[in-house]
Design a protein around this nucleic acid. Structure first.
Length: 150
DNA sequence: GCCAACGTTGGC
DNA sequence: GCCAACGTTGGC
């Protein structure tokens, strides 16, 4: 089983939205590196749900993969996520289906993550890491859930 | 809202 | 295939 971190702006989709919806297709990712990570997700993988661009930036809870990546339907629809190069035979973008697992009682703030020596090497700490889907080491994942989120 | 960092596009 | 211009992300 692998571990990941996914970013979302809570104004557009938050951990509370996922809790309400129970599950959602993780549509709209338009970055090749992030896409490749989405495609390598397997059912059962766990994800840190990260809130970006907000007053309390950090990990807000946990989600899990319940369905591997399929063609992202939003690439065929007129709108922000439309992809003119995509065909049904050759989709360009893919999205897995994620399910709600839990919301932390308090957000594990980016500041805490940056300051904790146990989390050295986490990609989200890297200066200028804009990647919205990132792999996370198992130890880092467990430490955030079992120590910092308590 | 600013702006640094980074990704993408397209002319050559 | 280089690289300038442009667009986007996301912390602050």
């Amino acid at each position: 089983m692998k571990h990941w971190l996914i970013k979302s702006e809570p104004g557009s989709y938050s951990i509370d939205d996922l809790k309400r919806d129970k599950r959602t297709g993780w549509e709209g990712v338009r970055n090749y590196q992030a896409r490749n990570f989405l495609q390598s997700m397997e059912v059962g993988d766990l994800l840190l749900f990260y809130h970006s661009n907000t007053s309390e930036t950090g990990v807000a809870g946990i989600a899990k993969v319940v369905r591997v990546a399929e063609p992202d339907p939003s690439q065929y629809k007129k709108g922000d996520y439309f992809e003119p190069r995509a065909t049904v035979e050759k989709p360009v973008w893919f999205c897995p289906t994620l399910a709600y697992v839990q919301k932390f009682r308090h957000i594990v703030l980016l500041d805490e993550i940056k300051l904790d020596p146990k989390l050295e090497g986490m990609l989200v700490r890297a200066r200028g890491s804009r990647l919205s889907v990132q792999p996370v080491g198992e130890k880092h994942f467990a430490y955030i859930c079992n120590v910092l989120a308590r």
